[in-house]
């Protein structure tokens, strides 16, 4: 049999499947993170004390083993590293996909794909822009439509009584919903956990469940504030 020359070997992690595994691994970390974040946000419904205590507790978590805010910073560094990998893998794969079809079709139907699957790339960019805005708004307070506020609770409540701010957050949450609906299933498939019909069905169900649960939980506090149920 004729043997072909082996292609120049790229490191396995830069192979298309290696990059996909990076996306899946970092993506799943974000899934756990948004679950925790959405749960934490619901503390707003418990009133100023509950929410301010929660915010304070996040900073004293692990004390005295860790310094004040220590846990939070470790957590942030892990998230930043995961984000860097997620974006790097996404851009590399996006570039390769563009290169893989240099001539486009004159007519092409999207016959089977979901809207969520087709909006992963631009949805991802929208989410990245939102994360930057969100950090400038409620972490660094560089963007401060709520003015100077004494407590975390006041920061939140005096932000989301503005309809346009709620609108920005709502759009981002919808983008997140799309990203989760396809991303969770896609991560399971990339990790090779969906090799049977039943496993595939379960992964899709889980993706739709978490993809609906997290956005709902994220939307409740801002809407409650906007409509004066919480103030």
């Amino acid at each position: 049999m004729a043997t072909s020359t082996l292609p120049a070997s790229t490191p396995a992690v830069r192979s298309s499947i290696g990059l996909k595994l990076l996306m899946a691994g970092s993506g799943l970390l974000f899934v756990f993170y948004v679950l925790a974040h959405a749960y934490g946000n619901l503390m707003v419904l418990g009133g100023p004390d509950a929410f301010n205590n929660y915010a304070h507790h996040l900073r004293t978590l692990g004390e005295p083993m860790l310094p004040y805010s220590g846990f939070l910073w470790v957590f942030r560094l892990v998230l930043i590293a995961a984000l860097a990998l997620h974006v790097y893998a996404a851009l590399t794969l996006w570039g390769r996909a563009n290169g893989a079809r240099s001539t486009k079709y004159a007519v092409k139907k999207a016959a089977a794909s979901s809207l969520a699957s087709r909006t992963m790339r631009f949805g991802g960019i929208a989410l990245l822009l939102f994360v930057i805005f969100h950090l400038l708004h409620l972490t660094t307070h560089t963007i401060r439509p709520q003015g100077e506020q004494p407590t975390p609770y006041a920061n939140v409540v005096n932000s989301f009584d503005k309809w346009w701010l709620v609108l920005i957050y709502a759009v981002a949450v919808i983008a997140l919903a799309f990203h989760l609906h396809h991303g969770i299933w896609s991560a399971a498939q990339t990790l090779g956990w969906t090799s049977t019909t039943a496993a595939r069905r379960n992964a899709k169900f889980l993706a739709h469940f978490i993809g609906s649960l997290v956005p709902t939980a994220f939307l409740i506090p801002p809407l409650c504030i906007l409509f004066g149920i919480v103030d």
Binding site: A8, T10, S16, S113, S117
Partner: peptide
């Protein structure tokens, strides 16, 4: 990968 195919995004087409 060397042949220039793209990566899968689990779209199902």
């Amino acid at each position: 990968d060397a042949e220039g195919f793209g990566g899968c995004t689990n779209i199902g087409e």
